[in-house]
Amino acid sequence: MTIEAISFPHGSIDQVQGRALMLRGDDIDTDRIIPARFLKCVSFEALGDQVFEDDRLELGGSHPFDLKVHQGASILVVNDNFGCGSSREHAPQALMRWGIRALIGQSFAEIFYGNCLALGIPCATAALAQIDALQQAVAADPSQSWAFNLQSQQLTSAAGSWDLQIESGPREMLLSGRWDATSQLLAQDAALKRTMADLPYLNDFAGSLH
């Protein structure tokens, strides 16, 4: 499957738009999202195809991630404690590479949530009743397009509008584009040079490591 159509998150993220799909069930752990055998790999690239591999094999083509109608979807609706278990960064990577750009659920495991944020993927929450209603709306018409606005924290489509919550810190980071640790660090290159110029082991008795 190709996900080239949507680029990976970058810069300020104020809106995620696209079709939605859902996975019902609490405590879906990172071992299910990406089984451990896929960790012996040299890049995250293949993970998009391997996401939920064991669950998908078991369902023989009827897993939501295999259904034709969901190909290209970008918003994943889940239930409680999604992403629990091992801290592997491979899990959000796998979801992102399949095409997911936002998650909506009752709650998310802490490390998984942080790993998503580091990739620019918002995880928004809502109460069970709302998630239920949302899942029904998605099921009723999987082809409809949704827009999740981070500013207003609203998810809207022709079917209606839902109020979601996203913690203020992460929301601020996503909106301002400061969710990307690498670019924050890179922004300080002048200060980095000054620090390097003052370090005795880089100057007074420096030797290259090579």
């Binding site: 801290s87 960064e89 690498t182 924050q184 660090l185 890179l186 300080q188 290159d189 980095l192």
Partner: peptide, 16 residues
């Protein structure tokens, strides 16, 4: 450090 921090160090020779 974790893999995403390895990336940060490679890119910026620094860490949060």
């Amino acid at each position: 450090i974790g893999t995403s921090q390895v990336r940060d160090v490679l890119a910026s020779q620094s860490l949060a």
